[in-house]
Design a protein around this nucleic acid. Sequence first.
RNA 1: GGCCCGUUCGUCUAGGGGUUAGGACGCGUCCCUUUCACGGACGAAACACGGGUUCGAUUCCCGUACGGGCUACCA
Length: 508
Amino acid sequence: MTINKKIRLRFAPSPTGGLHMGGVRTALFSYLYAKKHNGDFILRIEDTDQTRYVPGAEEYIIESLKWCGIEPNEGVGFGDGPHAPYRQSERKDKGIYTKYVEQLINCGGAYYAFDTEEEIEAMRKKLEAAKVVSPQYNAITRESMRNSLSLSQDEVQKLLNQKTPFVVRLKVPRNEDIRFHDLIRGWITVSSKQIDDKVLLKSDGMPTYHLAHVVDDIEMEISHVVRGEEWLPSAPAHILIYKYLGLENTMPYLAHLPLILKPDGNGKLSKRDKSGLPMFPLNWHDVRTNEKYIGYKETGYIKDAFINMLALLGWNPGNNQEILSKQELITQFSFEKVNKSGAKFDPEKTKWFNQQYLKQYSDEQLAELVTPLLKEKSINKPTEFIIEFCKLIKEKAHFINEFYDLGIYFFEAPTQYAEAVILKKWNSDLKPLYTELTDKLNTLTQWNLQSIHDVFNDFTTQGKKIDMQLVRVLTTGLAGGAQLLDFLALLGKDEIIKRLKAGIQAQK
RNA sequence: GGCCCGUUCGUCUAGGGGUUAGGACGCGUCCCUUUCACGGACGAAACACGGGUUCGAUUCCCGUACGGGCUACCA
């Protein structure tokens, strides 16, 4: 295992779609570890599958990382470092992979295979019919296929000269235990019987993931490979490549993260979910399928809350602390504290996280965030009004963009009155009392919290029972809402008197 | 099917050979509140099952069950 190597981690997504929260978490853990150890964090784009390329995906990944504050110090969209380019398609053009392919072929770790799709399919069918447990291109079956191991040197040369399409496959030993260490799971042993002769170089000249990521991790001097658990089964094949290259002792540490599971039911997180919660950091529009997905940002999440929630999905600091700043996450992160089992992500708790962060914001900060959203609704109020509005409404809200909906009565007089409350508490006999209240309020020369409070107090001491919830309904139309007296004070005498009169008028 | 990985309250998790198995979300009750929240207090709620090892297993080992992942010229 490596020692004294500079800490360098990479996030290496494929631009095949929007980056969902599972990917963001992988990037986050890598970032945290790199930062903790004063290392580098790199963004590499693994675009070796031309058929799955989605326009806009790469930009989306970059924008998402930026919004999340998970910024690479090297890589596509973040400035070139010493190992440019950082896009695998461009690296392929520079011949980086073929160099390694040749080395692998020369040392006997890989071989040419000329089989057509149909031939491989036929082989599989045959094996399935014979009830072979895993019908694969492997140490046994390759003997009956057309490749540089079964064919004579002359034949191979002839096929090559004729420009016959070929792939390069990894020569996996027939029966050999491959043992490797995972930072999260410990030692894992897999028999090479289980591994097929993976394609390393495709017939279009592109490397596959298996080859490309190993080569790039070597070239980019990556110290730790952090990726999802779905890669665990193919890790032995990667070990083999390092081994053939003679780099087994300097290969990166491996950390396979548990998967994030969908909130309801079982299975991996999918792009869309019944919970209604976003699965993506930002709004994502797939131009190929024309599918649109909502993002955390646009839903009104605070990025640090999103990051905090994500960090605690599969990891914990080992104590009861749940709200951690990015700096705290960096100093406390370790792979030892990453869980082994998959985590269902909980929409309710996600909202709670955001609320915790919302509470930390000052009213002024909130006003700044809310003002543009109100402008969209053609609401232009003085800043002091918005600040006070935020102060009153923030405890009711989980999200910035809920402020308007939750506090619409700050800006518009009610047209309907909470039916349940009216039904339960109102009757026509009350009209004189509430009219008297209105008149009394109308006589106030000073309109503030204290003077309003005094008016209500006077009624109470005189034994006249004013129901505060009814006042709330008459002035806001709703059964619940912000601090009532503060609300009355903020809206001003004229508006409140007007609303009270209209409210009383509207009741039977 | 085969292989790999996993399994502590409904969910996220702490813990770890002897604990009243701790916290958080959600839920319930109460307090605070002239209204609504916030907040506070309390409560219900978990070691998948079966064998070992051991004086003692939730913790270690082995099975079983269940869940997940992988099984492409996709990553």
